[in-house]
Amino acid sequence: MTLRLFWKLVRLLMKERMEYRGDFFLAIAAQIISYTGDYIIIWLFIQKFNHIAGWTWPEIALLYSISLFTYALGAAFSFVQMRDLEGQVNNGTLDALLVKPVNPYLYLICRGFNLGYIAHLVVSGSVLIWALTALDLEWSAMQIIYLVLTIISGALIQTGILTTIGATSFIWVRSGFLFNLFFKIKDFISYPLPVFGTFIQILLTFVIPFAFINYYPASFLLSRDTMLLSDEVMWLVPLMGPLCCLAGYRFWMYGVNRYQGAGG
């Protein structure tokens, strides 16, 4: 998988979208409405109760925006591709991928690179920027680098988890509902984790690393103490993404091997 091939794919994907540009922009508008709805409901909630576990509206907005922004980045490379894998395995279209001289995982995620997530990025990106200015933080170069790195890492965590779920379709044939479960569990990180007690924090730190997507980075940026990780390890947080992504990739390749019947 070369960069040249990736850019060629992106050019074709854009051209394809522009074939139905009316549709495309309608979908973007619809998603903007939908995600604005999500923000509004949290905003209404905080209008009433002022804070959740001591986190105020701009802080919650920051937390939620990092979650949504990294989801959009990660999902653009993985969600639809992984969700549709089940169907591709069933009707055999995946086979065509396996006779190409490319890495099947990289080709699949890039071939399906989804420009539609621009809506998520617009909504969450603007709220993110608003939240950062409203919070009146003191910015050092280190913090800016940290924020950028955690966003990349968060996107990689989301990709890694979605990839892992997608890979199960090689094994169980059906993976559809696991994606549904993913979104339900991901809802935990829309709120500050201390709300949910110790067990959930341990679960989302050590079992499914959702907490590394937004809770830990946001806590460190806002100088809030967390129960499980101290300030000294904050630079370990951005490592979680590459790790997760690699694990997901390995599992996916294991799944392909199983699909091919090469042991396992």
């Binding site: 619809a30 998603q31 409405i33 939908s34």
Partner: peptide, 13 residues
Amino acid sequence: FALDWMLGGFITI
């Protein structure tokens, strides 16, 4: 798909 998203947004709020 787009209409569904919109409906979903209104239902959420």
